[in-house]
Simulated scan of single mutants.
Amino acid sequence: MSPKDQTTGKHGRRGPRHVAIIMDGNGRWAQARGRPRLFGHHAGAKRVREIVEACPDLGVEYLTIFAFSTENWKRTQVEVAGLMSLFRRYITKEARALRDEGVRVRFIGDRVRLDDKLIRLMDELEEMTAGNTRVHLTIALNYGGRDEVARATKRLAEDVAAGRLDPASVDEETLPRYLDTHVLPDPDLVIRTSGEARISNFLLWQSAYAEYEFIDTLWPDFSSDIFAGLVRSYGARDRRFGGVKA
C-alpha cells in the first residue's frame, strides 16, 4: 500500500489511518506509587480499551499496540509470568466486548515461546472477531522487528528454493507479503510514551515513512484526549515522502 494512502477523518481533517503505539512506562508508573511493576501493567491494560474506543471518531481504522517484545523475556521470571497471566486474563475478559464493539483483533509475533492456553485464546479471539471492520486492533505479542524480518526472509527463501518464487522478481514489494503485517497498511503515525526516544525494534520495515511522536506521558496516564491531540497534530504535518513541493 502506498505511504500516501491516508483518509479524511470524521471532522474533515486529514489524519492517520493506522496508528501504532509503543506502550511504555507501566513499571515506572507503578514504582512511583510504591507499587510492584505488575500493578502498572494492569493499569496499562485498562487504558487500551479507552484508546480503542476513541479510534472511530478520530478516523483511525487501524491501531497496533506493542504488548510484549522478543527482548522482554530478559525481565525477571516473576514479571514475565505475571505478564503472560495478564494477557490471558485480558483476552478472556475483553473478548465479548471487542466482538460486540466491532473490533477485529489480530496478533503478530512469534508464538513458539507462548504457552498453549494463551495461543488457544489468541486463536479464538481472532476467529471470534474476524468479521468486524469498525476498528482493526493488532496486538504485537512476542514480537520483534528484526525477528519478523528474519522469519519473513526465511519463508521467502523457502519459496525461491521450491521454485515458487523467481529470485529475479524480488523487489521491495515482495518482502512485505511475507511479514506478519501483510494484511495491514503501513503505520502513518507511531507514538511512544514515557519519554524514551527510541523505536525498540518495533515495525522496522513498516515504519519507513511513518511520523513519530515521543511523549513524556507514562502509558497508564495516556488518555483519549492526549491521543486525539496527537492525531490532530499529525494532520498538520507536511508529508512529502522524499519529494518536494512544486
Results as ranks from 00 to 15, higher is better:
residue 105 V to L: 12
residue 129 T to G: 00
residue 65 I to E: 07
residue 103 V to N: 11
residue 152 A to R: 04
residue 34 G to L: 13
residue 77 Q to I: 06
residue 242 G to K: 03
residue 3 P to T: 08
residue 239 R to H: 09
residue 106 R to E: 08
residue 85 S to A: 15
residue 206 Q to C: 04
residue 171 D to Y: 08
residue 236 A to Y: 05
residue 35 R to E: 15
residue 150 A to H: 02
residue 243 G to I: 00
residue 40 G to F: 03
residue 135 V to W: 03
residue 72 N to Y: 07
residue 112 V to Q: 15
residue 99 R to N: 04
residue 241 F to G: 03
residue 119 I to R: 15
residue 163 G to Q: 02
residue 56 P to H: 03
residue 214 F to D: 04
residue 94 E to A: 09
residue 109 G to F: 14
residue 117 K to Y: 06
residue 91 I to K: 12
residue 4 K to Q: 13
residue 51 I to N: 05
residue 20 A to T: 07
residue 49 R to W: 12
residue 217 T to R: 13
residue 133 T to L: 01
residue 151 R to P: 10
residue 206 Q to E: 15
residue 50 E to M: 11
residue 86 L to H: 00
residue 205 W to G: 04
residue 141 L to P: 08
residue 118 L to K: 14
residue 197 A to S: 09
residue 20 A to E: 05
residue 91 I to P: 06
residue 148 E to F: 14
residue 120 R to S: 15
residue 231 V to R: 03
residue 113 R to Q: 10
residue 138 T to R: 15
residue 91 I to L: 13
residue 169 S to T: 15
residue 126 E to A: 03
residue 197 A to H: 06
residue 125 L to D: 01
residue 53 E to V: 05
residue 4 K to I: 05
residue 126 E to T: 11
residue 135 V to F: 01
residue 81 A to Q: 12
residue 34 G to C: 10
residue 83 L to T: 05
residue 32 A to P: 01
residue 230 L to A: 01
residue 186 D to W: 06
residue 81 A to D: 13
residue 175 L to P: 05
residue 114 L to S: 06
residue 24 D to S: 13
residue 246 A to E: 04
residue 202 F to G: 12
residue 93 K to L: 08
residue 31 Q to E: 12
residue 127 E to T: 14
residue 137 L to F: 08
residue 197 A to I: 10
residue 81 A to M: 05
residue 183 V to K: 13
residue 158 E to V: 10
residue 202 F to E: 09
residue 239 R to Y: 01
residue 112 V to S: 15
residue 2 S to E: 10
residue 84 M to S: 10
residue 208 A to L: 01
residue 215 I to C: 15
residue 214 F to Q: 10
